[in-house]
Amino acid sequence: MKNSHFWRKTKSALASAASFVCALLVIAPLALVFLHLLRSGASAVNWSFFTELPKPVGVAGGGMVNAIAGSFELLGLAALVGVPVGVFGGVYLAEYGTVRGNWLLRFVADVLNGVPSIIWGVVVYGLVVLRFKSFSAYAGGLALGFIMIPLIMRTTEEVLLLVPAGYREASLALGISRWKTIVHIVMKTALKGIVTAILLALARVAGETAPLLFTAFGNRFWNHDLSEPIAALPLQIFSYAISPYDDWHRQAWAGALVLVVTIFFVNILVRFLTRERVARVL
């Protein structure tokens, strides 16, 4: 009797220890990747990285300024697609509709969230690139925007549902119409959460490469025409990583470091701004 009790206690302690080791193993890759990024990337992040265009093959030096700018342009275009659709779709889920219908819409959004990002590249290729016979910033932005839609929709819904019903009632009781109540009272109250949702979605697609391979395509030069192929940081990292040149590998690490630090920064900022609640939804 006593013995079996001792054995049960031991087993419990063993289970705790084993699962702790598993948790360490899960976060180990983060530490390994981040350390290597710092070690291999930090030395290559310098002034010219942020200010210069890529140099021709064989010439050392140069930077990724066009890719950094291109990534921002792509994110801007993606936001044009993803933000209105995502935010107002989220408004519908939170404020209107029937229990059953919204369950279905939520379900579809969650399934859509699981569509591999490369598929979006293929779809936009067929939709835009084939039609206009050119890779373009528009195509890349559209692909990223599609990915953002279900992400923003679901998070917006969650943050709107956190707004207490009392505010809606108070506003409606003032004779303010429902849509004005939603826009000026509910959405305004949840503004921080909605911004958070958008920022997290942007941070998420900022690192996407697969959907850009044959939409934005990449570009070694400046491009100010959105209907032409455009550079993006993740694309540049990819093409440098699989190239045979040491100097380009160095720059790939530098680009990776910049990208990861930016993404982490946004994530931490957002978590700092809001409660855990919102971030967890993603």
């Binding site: 976060i27 390994l32 900022a206 490469t209 990292i237 990819f238 590998h249 993404i263 994530n267």
Partner: peptide
Amino acid sequence: LIEMLAAIPSVILGLWGIFV
């Protein structure tokens, strides 16, 4: 920390995969 791991882009994990 796990959320940060989730935030690392696939292409960067690939870069680490190739060289490390």
